[in-house]
Simulated scan of single mutants.
Amino acid sequence: MWAARMTTIDTNRAGADVFIDDVENDEFTTLDALESEAIHIFREVAGEFERPVILFSGGKDSTVLLHLALKAFWPAPLPFALLHVDTGHNLPEIIAFRDEIVERHNLRLHVASVEEYLADGRLTERPDGIRNPLQTIPLLDAITENRFDAVFGGGRRDEERSRAKERIFSLRNAFGQWDPKRQRPELWNLYNGRHAPGEHVRVFPLSNWTELDIWRYIAREQVLLAPLYYAHEREVFERDGMWMTSGSWGGPREGETVEVRKVRYRTVGDGSTTGAILSDADTNEAVLDEVAASRLTERGATRGDDRVSEAAMEDRKREGYF
């Protein structure tokens, strides 16, 4: 099959410059198919909705999502804004990377701050200090205030059981809640974006990707990621089988010893509940080998908030969480 493939978004200068490979008589690969599907979804939403937005956390999935969105509309500017629900407990490298990407590509960024909601009493700090579940209300308020009718997310079906139930177009009611019984059939890549006033649709272009697909794509496209996804020396302490970092969310408890270890993050989120793994993988190729050998998803291995119960994520999704 003849295919012209856009390969690299230039991250060394401002703008979304994309270089085109020579046309080759090349086999259409799995990554090509996944990329084509995601780009089709972005363009479908652009034609069907009035005010879409991309959830962008600075993590690897949302970074790949943004890379695909830039490709979908190049050479035109990205027609969507970005939205980050900031818990205030993010690792500093992630916030720095988020701001760098926004400036580099001249993007519009909305920030919904959990910290502000805690400061004015709209939210109350949890006893365990974990803020990921507190993202729901700021997220829903941002959607309502900005009248976003489609919200892109980087969720993948291989991550977690409740996400495996999710359609690519996921209807949410006027309260932002998810009801699996209202999921619509998606046959022949036909997506139903109909929604009543006040409702919105969550859109997941990476639904059919796996963690390994993500890393293969990052390696192929040379997608720039936050450095903490690669092995580096860091002061950490062990808790519940995860290597945690001290921060504004608190440090080691009694009996937990801080030590310098070579680690990397498979996923990023609230610093109080997201752990690193011991690793020497400091290149895309080494990470690919490590992920291919893993028998645990990144959320199962390093996200403490998903260990509360088997239905923890589904319970939060029903309340409006992504």
Rank of each mutant, 00 (worst) to 15 (best):
L91A: 13
L187R: 00
I277M: 08
N12K: 13
K165P: 04
R299H: 15
T283C: 00
T302I: 06
R239V: 00
E115T: 11
L187T: 01
A312C: 01
R216M: 08
R303V: 10
L206Y: 08
D179G: 04
G275N: 00
L296N: 14
S294G: 09
R167Y: 01
I277H: 07
H232Q: 15
E314T: 03
T144L: 13
L83S: 01
T257A: 11
D179A: 06
E233S: 12
H84Y: 12
V236W: 05
A142I: 07
V64Q: 07
D17T: 11
R172S: 00
V291A: 02
E290K: 02
D22N: 14
W74K: 10
S113V: 00
A301N: 09
G88T: 02
R316Q: 11
M6G: 13
S272I: 08
E160M: 06
A112F: 01
D22T: 12
E27L: 09
D280C: 07
R220C: 01
Q222G: 11
G320S: 06
S162M: 00
V23E: 02
L66W: 05
P252T: 06
R253F: 11
S309T: 09
G271E: 00
Y321F: 15
V23H: 00
T267C: 14
F97L: 03
E160H: 07
E238G: 04
M6P: 09
H40N: 13
F19M: 13
S309R: 01
H200C: 05
V260L: 15
L34C: 04
L171Q: 07
G155I: 13
A231P: 08
F56Q: 04
R303S: 09
F175N: 15
V85D: 08
D26N: 12
E100R: 15
G255F: 09
A196K: 15
M244A: 04
A142M: 03
A119K: 09
G129L: 03
S272K: 15
R318E: 09
E48N: 14
N284E: 06
P227E: 12
L206S: 00
S162R: 04
E103S: 11
D270K: 10
V287W: 00
K317W: 10
D17R: 13
N90R: 15
R98G: 06
E285Q: 02
V102M: 04
Y230L: 13
W188A: 14
E50F: 09
A3F: 10
A312L: 01
V291F: 06
E254L: 09
N146H: 11
F169P: 00
P127Q: 03
E314Q: 09
D280W: 09
M313L: 13
E298C: 09
T11P: 05
V268P: 07
S309W: 03
L83H: 07
M244H: 05
A301L: 14
F28Q: 03
D86W: 04
L123N: 02
S207T: 11
L70Q: 13
V236C: 05
R234Q: 15
R307F: 03
E24Q: 10
I20E: 12
R172H: 04
R194V: 13
R182H: 14
D306A: 10
S57E: 08
